[in-house]
């Protein structure tokens, strides 16, 4: 049986039935394109992406369109309702709430994204090292467990209380607090990412193409960057989106407890904190920042859900 079929390799084997003859160059079907196609089908994810991009657009370009200074006092117009000039009303000192929300959005979002990037970087590095190098796995995972056992909110509050003044003196009030809060959130939220990345690295490491790379003689550093990292992108991306949500909520919580940004640099949490005292008279001061936070976090969570589903090979019709 097997002796009869013989193929001389100089002859070109025709392509598998069904695939087009290579006359015109075929559109590349990369993994990214497949994932994008699957993501588009996830209604929640798409809605979330639209909402999130709208918020970013508003926050970045809104102040130029709306043109009102958020710190301009206009006591005569205090506690005004919704009007064309003040789409969200004013606070007790006459400051325009909409302008404050836009300005606060810039701070909150930049803190959220930067803190997420920091925690992603730390988490991924630790996860990859722990997953790939067996000797490092023990100590690094114990370190992760240690950080996970720390009571975060109390410690965050304590650290901010301790170092707020020193940083403010060294770097100026705005940058100092920004750095402190970003650092503090980043240092305390990398553990989930590290655990997930380590799990993914452990499973990718066992696959045969990694063994093949070793048999070729590829150096370890290249194996990690060329083979391991591209294949653990999915949990990293999901962690990234969820990290933004966590960072924004944590920053808002800190501001709400009075230990975040000072009152001259509004963030959404700070606006909420300031508005609580005037809740009875002017509930809109509390509603708008809260809605802004909730909407942003909700949209980011939906995006994360969509990405997670799109990257799951079982759901993707393969």
């Amino acid at each position: 049986m097997i002796d009869q079929v013989s193929v001389a390799p100089e002859k070109v084997i025709p392509p598998a039935p069904g695939s087009p003859v290579a006359a015109e160059p075929r559109k590349q079907s990369t993994l990214t394109a497949d994932v994008w196609r699957q993501f588009r089908q996830h209604k929640g994810g798409v809605m979330g992406a639209i909402v999130f991009l709208t918020i970013i657009f508003l926050v970045v370009f809104g102040p130029y369109i709306h043109g009102v200074d958020p710190s301009a006092l206009n006591v005569r117009e205090r506690n005004a309702g919704i009007s064309l000039a003040h789409p969200m009303g004013t606070d007790n000192l006459g400051r325009d709430t909409f302008a404050q929300i836009l300005a606060g959005g810039r701070t909150s979002l930049s803190v959220g994204v930067t803190a997420m990037l920091l925690s992603l970087f730390v988490g991924t590095t630790i996860g990859v090292l722990a997953g790939y190098f067996k000797k490092l796995e023990g100590p690094l995972m114990r370190l992760t467990d240690l950080f996970l056992a720390l009571p975060l909110l109390p410690l965050l509050l304590v650290i901010i209380m301790l170092f707020r003044d020193t940083l403010r003196r060294s770097f100026g009030p705005e940058t100092g607090i920004f750095m402190l809060i970003v650092f503090v959130i980043g240092i305390t939220s990398w553990m989930q990412t590290a655990r997930i990345v380590r799990g993914a690295v452990l499973s990718v490491k066992e696959q045969e193409f990694v063994l093949a790379a070793k048999s070729i003689g590829t150096r370890e550093r290249r194996i990690i960057t060329r083979h391991i990292l591209p294949n653990v992108l999915s949990p990293i991306m999901v962690s990234a989106t969820l990290g933004i949500a966590t960072a924004i909520i944590t920053e808002s919580a800190l501001s709400f407890l009075g230990l975040g940004f000072p009152s001259d640099f509004p963030t959404w949490g700070r606006l909420l904190f300031d508005g609580v005292n005037f809740m009875q008279i002017n509930p809109s001061r509390v509603i708008w920042p809260g809605l802004a936070i909730s909407l942003t976090v909700l949209s980011v969570n939906y995006i994360g859900d969509g990405i997670r589903d799109a990257l799951d090979p079982r759901i993707r019709g393969r």
């Binding site: 993994l31 696959q207 045969e208 193409f209 063994l211 093949a212 790379a213 048999s215 070729i216 060329r226 083979h227 591209p230 294949n231």
Partner: peptide, 15 residues
């Protein structure tokens, strides 16, 4: 060099 058993797992899907 080596030729592996599983043709799917022996090629990096992202390359």
């Amino acid at each position: 060099q080596m030729i592996f058993q599983d043709p799917q797992a022996s090629l990096n899907p992202r390359m």
